[in-house]
Each structure stands twice: as C-alpha cells, then as structure tokens.
Simulated scan of single mutants.
Amino acid sequence: MYGYLVADESALDEAEKARYQQLYCGLCHALGTRYDLPSKIGLSYDMVFLVMLLGSLYEPAEDTGSERCAVHPMKEHAYCVSSSTDYAADVSVALAYHKLLDNWVDDRSISARAGMAALKRSYETARLRAPHACSAIERELARLGELERADSDRIDEAAACFGRALGEIFAWRDDFWAPQLRTFGLHLGGLIYLMDAACDYEHDSKQESYNPFIASGIDPAHARDAIANVAGAAADAFERLPLERDLHLMRSVVYAGIWTPYNRCYGTETESGDA
C-alpha cells in the first residue's frame, strides 16, 4: 500500500520541493545509519508524510547535512533528520518486512522470500525500537489476513484493520495527542486500504485474488462518493491537529496527492461523469 501518501508536486513551490526532497533523503540517511543497505527497500515518500506529521506536531530539533550516496554518487545532496525521522525509519522497516511477507504468503514469490531474509535482522531491531507500532502492525495485519482467507465481504471491517494499524503508528507517544492521532490514522489508513483495493480491482479479478470490492460485489468505479466520505473524515481529523511546519506540504498529500492513483485508474470526477 505504497504510493498514496505522496505530495501533489504541482501545488508546491521550489522551496517546498527542496524541503520535501531533503526530508526524503533524511529518511534514506536514517535507514542507512540505523539499519543497513537492504533496509532501504522500505524507503518511500509515504513515510516522509509520517516524518512531517510528527515533526510538525512535536517539533523535535532537526539536523541537516549533505552526502553522496549510491543513487547520487557524483554530487552531494542535502538531507534533514530528527527523532521523527528515526521513528519513521523503524516503521519503514516494519512495513517493508510485512509487505514482503504478504507477497510470500499470497504468491510464494521467491524474491519476497529473499527480501524477508535480508530484512529479518533489521525487523527484529525495529521491533525493539518501536514495539508499540510493530505489535499493532502484526496484530491488525493478522486480523486482515483472517478476513481475506474467509473471503469476507465486510469491506469496512477490512479497511478498519489497516486504519487501526496506521492509527497506532501515528500515536508515537502516549500523550495528549495520541487519541487524535489514532483517529486521523484510522480514517487515513481506511482510505488508503480502499483506494489500494480499488486500484488492484482489475488485477485481483484476473488473478482470482481476494479484494473486498469483489467480495462485496461493489464496482470501485462507482464507489467514489463512499471513498470521498472517508477522505473527508481523514481531512477533518487532520485539520484538528495544531500543525504549522510543512502544513502546506501535508495538505497537498491529504487533499490531492492521495487521490492520484485512484484518479489514474478511474479518472477525475469530471472525466468519469460524476461531477
């Protein structure tokens, strides 16, 4: 379920694009220093959203630097890191490991099995560093697996599994903001799950794989209003948080960027005739 929490770069100015890239490079840097090279398989802009969200809410001190890497060997690039970056690196490893596990269980993918072996030690470390988040991921994905094996048509329940997992990931600290972060994660995670299922609908139909839209007999092309309601609940929970740093960047994710994969599959409201 990667590729949804990504900014709409057409709405960003050059300074914001540079900041976004620095945070991405910072996450890459943290994965390399806290873990190892294979752990960078978990690098994604989705987890940069987590860096921004927690960085904006808690305002941890940021460190900046520049370095060369395998992707940019000829030129140094700037990066920005904080304690929220370190936490996002831990979560990145956990999510990457479970994505590979899911691919192995579903398809018996040899590459997924090899990836799991490469990440095994890093995942064990991530479980020690972020036990609350990793426990939630394990618990909720196990429940989701049960629904999939039962070919459940309870689409809201399936979406809630990923929502609860993301809610616990967002609840970085057990403090005043944890309940609101859980609420935001619940709605946003449910939205990501629904959009991912909608975008995988055709592939899953051909492969006869589980998909909640198939199980419930719902055509995702006609589910835009229902998905938009979940998006609205996520946006409302987001706006209730006192965020300032990187706010415009995050809004470009929550209000626009997150719709990009769905719109690529089914067109915009105007194109699909829903306007």
Rank of each mutant, 00 (worst) to 15 (best):
Y255I: 01
R251S: 03
Q22S: 14
P131A: 06
L181V: 02
R34W: 05
A18S: 15
D13N: 15
V105A: 14
A126K: 01
M250N: 03
C80L: 11
A231H: 12
I218D: 11
E269D: 13
V81S: 00
I227D: 02
H77I: 13
S205E: 11
S205C: 15
M1A: 13
S205I: 12
K206P: 07
Y193W: 13
S92Q: 01
H29P: 00
L31I: 02
L100I: 00
E140P: 06
L191N: 03
S109C: 11
L31N: 04
R264I: 05
M74W: 14
D246T: 05
L191I: 07
T64L: 08
A15Y: 07
V51K: 00
L100R: 10
I227H: 03
M195P: 06
V6T: 13
R154H: 13
G3M: 09
Y4F: 12
G185S: 03
N229H: 10
I155C: 10
A275Q: 12
L57V: 05
E202D: 13
R154Q: 15
A126E: 03
D106L: 09
L37Y: 12
Y4R: 05
W172E: 06
L166F: 14
A118D: 10
K75S: 12
I155Y: 13
L128F: 05
R121I: 13
L31P: 04
P73W: 06
A96K: 04
E9T: 15
E140N: 11
R264T: 11
D204G: 10
Y35A: 05
E9N: 08
D90G: 06
R121Q: 13
A223P: 08
S135Q: 14
D174V: 09
A198C: 09
S252Y: 05
F184L: 15
K17W: 01
M74S: 14
G189I: 12
K206Y: 10
L188Y: 08
I41T: 12
D86P: 07
C80A: 09
E269Y: 07
Y20L: 14
L53N: 00
E244Q: 12
A15H: 12
A275Y: 11
R149N: 14
Y201L: 08
G115T: 04
A118I: 09
R68W: 07
L188A: 10
V93G: 02
A89D: 00
G55W: 03
A7F: 00
D102T: 10
S92D: 05
T125G: 09
D13I: 08
R121D: 13
W172N: 05
Y24N: 03
L53D: 01
L141Q: 09
T33L: 01
A61G: 08
D102P: 07
H248G: 05
P261S: 05
A142S: 13
G115E: 07
M1T: 12
A61F: 04
A112N: 11
L166H: 03
N229T: 10
A237V: 03
S83R: 05
C28A: 02
W172I: 02
R19V: 00
I110F: 15
I218V: 15
N211T: 04
R113L: 14
V91E: 00
F213E: 08
G163P: 04
T260S: 11
L53H: 04
E168T: 10
E244K: 14
H29N: 01
S39D: 02
Y262V: 02
E67I: 08
E157D: 15
K99M: 09
K99G: 04
